[in-house]
Amino acid sequence: MSAETALQTASELLEQWAKEATTPEPFRLDVVIEPDDLLAAVKALRDASWGYLSTITGVDLGVEAGEFELLYHFSNGAALATLRVRTPRDNPSVPSVCGIIPTATLYEREIIEMFGISVEGTPNTDRLFLPDDWPDGVYPLRKDYIYDDPTAQA
């Protein structure tokens, strides 16, 4: 399956949920979907054995935008399909894909810890990647997290 046909297949698979589909770069397909459709879309890709979940990237769109964006990257050879999901800053929440892809737990935990986005139904939400003495409610990858360097020279 060449990259073009793979992308063609992916866009057909995801068509029914896509709010918007773009190709920002060659061999890439970005599909914006609603959080509620995420599970169905992931399942569709999984059932069609379309590639594997490379990772989940969280992006803070900034305080003004008031939203987080989660990017579910699926790779299939040279082809990359990205599911873009947006969730509001004041009550960020997305469903867990662990039921479909068990290994996603690693990526989801990163999202929970770094952005404070609650992932509904993920099997494990314990603090595990930040140090044990990390203060609660502080999410380092949020844009409004400013780090004071204790070792910085004046």
């Binding site: 494990n124 595990l128 990647f129 930040l130």
Partner: peptide, 12 residues
């Protein structure tokens, strides 16, 4: 960036 607790159903 990341740290994980491996096996899914093992206790944390």
């Amino acid at each position: 960036m990341v740290s994980v607790k491996g096996t899914l159903d093992s206790q944390c």
